[in-house]
Design a protein around this nucleic acid. Structure first.
Length: 387
DNA sequence: AACCCGTGGTT
DNA sequence: TAACCAAGGGT
């Protein structure tokens, strides 16, 4: 029995060597003329390439640029990253999201100091051992910084290739990436692998986009089977996401006599792990615990009395809440939607002394790292007069 | 394999 | 507006 390779299994016919050569030339010529000027394209320093690739995970180029510039300016060497306190790193990352990315980078920087004598590893397998670096990022860094012929298959590349070859595999599945990597191993330019990978991504980001895709404007349209067959609207195939769940929180901005506000550090796992928010009480959990004498509608009086009692019992803190919410804020995550019913409150005695609680004065807000939902609450409260 | 993890921009 | 999307990785 003859063993079928990955491409044969998926009914993908690879181009001839001659066609592959023409494709490389066409794509790289287009890239040389049309590539975007990006700060991380001014260097081959693997550390800087690494930083950019981590920031670019699930994040748009325009968002990343200022973060990237500030990050490498503040921490110009891997050793700086390895030695930086977590608060410094989180402040540099504030607003970018997916905060485990920067925590993992610190872990990886320490790995590099320990296992690779402080020098970013060149071996692809070594790179993959670094925390937070997966198949895409390993391929990106080794191809761009070290000119290795490694595939770097991201969402752009899968979209471009699925249209070029009319591939109907579901690109939301992790296993699909391997098929596209095999295609890239055939196509990648051995002289300029990093540029080749980046060219495909630029093409996906600027021309071969998800929407507003006009294939006749593509520099490689003659290679595009879905264009020639007028089937491009079918690609890429992507399973729809499940709906986001909604959660409602009574959110308490508690102020003491020193005009400081009370924040609570979230658990080390889960959403916004280890970050500060005001005290947030999940409405559902609250009800389940038997605090249910209130009815909703526009009368918050009974809710407020219960919340005051709850804070006294759970946090050992006497507070006086305003009887009406200051506002209702919404924040959408990738998979959750928060509704925050924000109340202002005064601490009648400053005896909240739990480890996870922290009083912070408004004048220190810009020095603290706050996730965006907390920033929204802060902004709301900054506009109000308490009592 | 399926789900978790932020945020901002578009349609 | 709800849904979708963006240079993914960890568990």
């Amino acid at each position: 029995m003859k063993q079928k390779n990955v491409l044969q299994k998926n009914n993908i016919t690879m181009w001839s060597e001659e066609k592959i050569d023409r494709f490389r030339q066409t794509l790289l010529n287009w890239y040389d003329e049309s590539k975007r000027d990006l700060p991380w394209r001014e260097t081959t320093n693997p550390y800087y390439i690494w930083v950019s690739e981590i920031m670019l995970q699930q994040t748009q180029v325009d968002t990343v640029i200022p973060y990237y510039n500030r990050f490498i300016k503040t921490l110009p060497k891997i050793s700086d990253l390895a030695e930086a306190p977590e608060e410094t790193l989180l402040k540099l990352w504030e607003g970018l999201g997916y905060y485990s990315r920067v925590r993992n980078m610190k872990v990886a920087a320490i790995q590099i100091q320990k296992d690779f004598e402080g020098k970013f590893p060149e071996n692809h397998k070594d790179v993959l051992t670094l925390k937070g670096i997966g198949p895409y990022t390993a391929g990106a860094v080794t191809s761009i910084a070290f000119n290795q012929t490694q595939p770097a298959v991201d969402g752009n590349v899968m979209r471009v290739l699925s249209r070029l070859f009319e591939i109907d595999l579901d690109i939301s599945k992790v296993s699909t990436r391997k098929v596209f990597e095999e295609i890239i191993r055939h196509l990648i330019d051995p002289e300029r692998p990093g540029d080749f990978n980046q060219a495909l991504m630029d093409l996906g980001a600027t021309i071969c986009t998800p929407k507003n895709y006009f294939p006749e404007t593509s520099p490689v349209k003659e290679f595009n089977a879905s264009y020639l067959n007028e089937t491009w609207e079918k690609y890429p195939v992507k399973k729809k996401k499940t709906k986001v769940t909604e959660k409602t929180f009574y959110t308490l901005m508690i102020k003491n006599e020193k005009d400081e506000y009370l924040y609570e550090k979230r658990p080390s796992k889960g959403v916004l792990a280890g970050m500060f928010t005001p005290i947030m009480i999940n409405q559902e959990t609250f009800k389940e615990q038997g605090w249910k004498l209130f009815n909703e509608e526009d009368d918050y009086n009974s809710i407020v009395r219960e919340l005051e009692q709850y804070i006294a019992e759970v946090y050992k803190l006497k507070i006086k809440m305003n009887s009406q919410p200051k506002g209702i804020l919404k924040h959408v995550f990738s998979h959750i939607k928060w509704e925050m019913i924000v109340f202002e409150a005064l601490a009648l005695e400053d005896n909240a002394r739990f480890e996870n609680l922290k009083w912070i004065h408004m004048s220190q807000f810009d020095k603290e790292m706050f996730p965006v939902p907390t920033q929204k609450v802060n902004n709301l409260v900054e506009t109000l007069t308490l009592f």
